[in-house]
Amino acid sequence: MIREILISVLLLVGSLLVFLSGLGLLRFSDALCRSHALAKASTCGICLMLAALILALDNDISGLKIFLVMTFTLLTIPLAGHLTAQLVYRHEQGRLRKPASGQKKSAESKSSLPADR
């Protein structure tokens, strides 16, 4: 019974995190933050769900395999995030807005990145 609860908790939290990363993707103002959202939140979400899967399938071989999947996702998704972030950074160089010194300043500064239909 505890296993059921644990699995459902893990699943819910994991999917919530993935959802949040999706939301972040939509809400954030420029590409750099979006890659930030992608890299962190979704990795953690997926790992939690995989942990839930390990618990759900209780034979140990598949557990090991899922652990392999987990390491793989832990390895690749941040790397992808890093790549995109680096690309954005290299492309924009100086034109990125400074970290918001004052609340006022960041509100009015529109996304400096040219939008692309």
Binding site: T71, F72, L75, T76, L79, H82, L83, Q86
Partner: peptide, 17 residues
Amino acid sequence: TTDSFLVRALIGLVFLL
């Protein structure tokens, strides 16, 4: 290709996996 050191280092591991 990407000149970021991080990717270049980890790609070997990914390749192996």
